[in-house]
């Protein structure tokens, strides 16, 4: 069992992807299947960009064992008022700055969903959002 944490800073686009990159390196060292690694890091990267773009910063918690990886992204708000809507392809509240970065087209959450085995999103407006994703290595 391995536990790692990464801090995500609001608006810190220069470092967006750093956590995903570290996770990728770790999974490669553990000889996890390349296709699995890609699924995991694409999902985490989208979530990392979301946390930087939409939230007031947060923390990424990674728990890893022989069977699966569990990634929890916990941010400090503002929260998602309508999760079902946010899951729709093309629905976006992204700023111009986020769009300049090549994101913000309403694809992030659907992309995450497509790449993970389990996804749970809890959000409270004014408090924050928690996105938990699990990818099984042997499925």
């Amino acid at each position: 069992m391995m536990h790692t944490e990464f801090i995500v800073v609001e608006g810190d686009f220069a470092n967006a992807g750093k956590a995903s990159s570290e996770i990728k390196k770790t999974l490669k060292q553990l000889n996890i299947d390349n296709q699995k690694i890609k699924k995991i890091v694409v999902a985490v990267y989208e979530a990392e960009v979301n946390a930087i773009a939409h939230a007031y910063g947060g923390t990424i918690f990674v728990d890893l064992d022989e069977e699966k990886i569990c990634v929890l992204i916990k941010d400090k708000g503002p929260g998602i008022p309508d999760i079902a809507r946010a899951m729709e392809k093309g629905y976006s509240t992204a700023s111009a700055k986020v769009r300049e970065m090549g994101f913000g087209a309403g694809m992030g959450l659907p992309n995450i969903k497509n790449n993970v085995d389990e996804l749970d999103i809890q959000s409270e407006v004014g408090v924050g959002t928690e996105i938990k994703m699990i990818v099984n290595f042997n499925s």
Partner: peptide, 28 residues
Amino acid sequence: SDVLTLEEEHLILITGLCNNQTIRTAEM
């Protein structure tokens, strides 16, 4: 985000988006 939906790998990405996220996307 569209690039991140591709299953195909080891391709050439042709883009006018020129920032760190382009490289990170290619990495992932």
